[in-house]
């Protein structure tokens, strides 16, 4: 259980996820046609957007990243989902905040978990219990 001060810290971080427009966005009565289009543009469709020069650095792969890649691929191999479902869930359905806020393979594993629940292979409660169990196992060493 998070302490009350932990909870306050989580709320503060959450509040910062609001898109950086300069308008209040808590359920507006109406939005402009341009805003409607902007919200509905799939977050992964970034080609042509402006951005500054970048350092194109290399990144060493984490073990969990390799495992995530393989788990998602094997679920595809076994016909549990197809690649277009994967792209839809992991690039679009999660929304812009998670799309930009999560690591690359974080989106992949989020999508796999979501798919298993959506397709009724597991229940959400099973998933939550499993996450808690794995966490406890690792905390115990």
């Amino acid at each position: 259980m998070p302490s009350r001060s932990d909870l306050k810290r989580l709320y503060d971080v959450g509040a910062q996820l609001a898109p950086m427009t300069h308008q209040q966005q808590d359920w507006p009565y109406e939005i402009s046609p341009d805003a409607y289009k902007a919200y509905l543009q799939p977050p992964h469709d970034v080609g042509g957007q402006a951005s500054g020069p970048s350092v194109f650095e290399e990144k060493e792969e984490e073990l969990w990243e390799l495992n995530t890649y393989v788990t998602c691929e094997v679920l595809g191999w076994k016909g549990v989902w197809n690649s277009e479902e994967r792209r839809r869930i992991g690039n679009n359905d999660l929304g812009a905040s998670l799309y930009y806020g999560f690591p690359y393979y974080g989106r992949w594993i989020w999508a796999a978990a979501r798919m298993l629940v959506d397709k009724k292979h597991i229940s959400l409660m099973e998933l939550l219990e499993k996450i808690a169990e794995v966490k406890a196992r690792h905390a115990a060493g």
Binding site: W64, N67, T68, T71, V74, L75, V80, P103, Y105, G106, I109, W110, A112, A113, L116, H121, I122, E126, L127, K130, I131, E133, V134, K135, H138
Partner: peptide
């Protein structure tokens, strides 16, 4: 958290 989630998904699958 992502390591935990990955292990959870893999074990459940």
């Amino acid at each position: 958290d992502f390591e935990i989630l990955e292990i959870a998904v893999r074990e459940l699958a």
